[in-house]
Design a binder for these strands. Structure first.
Lengths: 161, 161
DNA sequence: TCTCCAATGAAACAAACTTGCAAATGAGAG
DNA sequence: CTCTCATTTGCAAGTTTGTTTCATTGGAGA
């Protein structure tokens, strides 16, 4: 399914294009071209190549959660009891399937999973904990952090390297 | 600066449009229209309205961090010493300004800030901790979690409500 | 120096977005 | 129950943007 085509070393042009698209992917190709001294078709071909190579994974609209009634962002640290490969895979699958879980990472350290959860209100979060954590016999402990301020939110990847 | 226009209650059409754009904002308006039984211009006007209202905050390309040399994702929980308004604002500003810090939240609970950091390697992270945490006299303690697997990553907001 | 390959730009072409306008829809007043 | 007004819609025309074609350029390697 994944048409990972090749590994084309990104040059300075590619990085500048990515930098622009990471901020606004509705920027016209001609405008990008003007900014980096390249023609629109050249920009278009590079974007296509990077998309096929998987460097660009998606093109998405970013919404204001509060504007669609999802006012609360919560972090959860989870510690599991058994860390067998099968159990971990099960947990990953379950967390990934829950729409309220916006992000899920399997981590080292004092916790095993870190989740970012988006819900309309605390009642919904409480219901979610019952379903996902108390209802999962492999969850040993979890700690909740409620976001008071989303200081910086995004998926922007630095391109300095 | 922020042209928050009005608060138009989103109807079922709007929500379906947002749902599609959250997954792929390159979807042609005519295709969206076909999917929800609306004409392309109607879709276009709704998107414009929601963008002006701030419901749609941005349109961005999502990159594969590993493909651009940023292989490591790290979570950091930070506890500060003094939580005066001024100190907190300073911290927010400093964290928001760092390009390696992809996400920053001010939270309740056993920590004060949670950061998501993206760096090329552990050496860079170590340098970052020296600069941002050890170099900041208001940081009391910080805990590091290194992501072994980015199980689910995105900014998708559930639209069930 | 020569050859070959990959990438480029200009121009033609196709697709998508945007606007103008008349018709339809729905809410509220009379 | 009907009328009116404000809003939203669809169609069609116009504009912008994206895509393809093709001849040319610029190098890397022989």
């Amino acid at each position: 399914m994944n048409k990972r085509v090749q590994l084309p070393p990104l040059d300075a042009f590619d990085r500048k294009i990515l930098d622009i698209l990471q901020q606004d992917n509705t920027t016209p190709q001609r405008e990008i071209g003007d900014a980096i001294n390249l023609s629109a078709p050249a920009v278009q071909r590079r974007i296509k190549r990077m998309t096929e190579a998987g460097v660009i994974q998606a093109n998405v609209a970013v919404l204001d959660p509060a504007a669609v009634g999802q006012s609360i962002t919560i972090f959860v640290e989870i510690e599991v009891i058994s860390e067998t490969a099968a159990q971990i895979e099960d947990a990953k699958r379950e967390f990934a399937a829950a729409p309220e879980i916006q992000q899920c990472y399997y981590v080292t350290g004092e916790a095993d999973f870190i989740l970012v959860i988006v819900v309309p209100n605390m009642g919904d979060y409480e219901a979610l904990t019952r379903r996902l954590f108390f209802g999962n016999s492999n969850v040993k402990r979890f700690r909740t952090f409620v976001a008071m301020d989303r200081v910086k939110v995004g998926l922007h990847v630095p391109l300095g390297a």
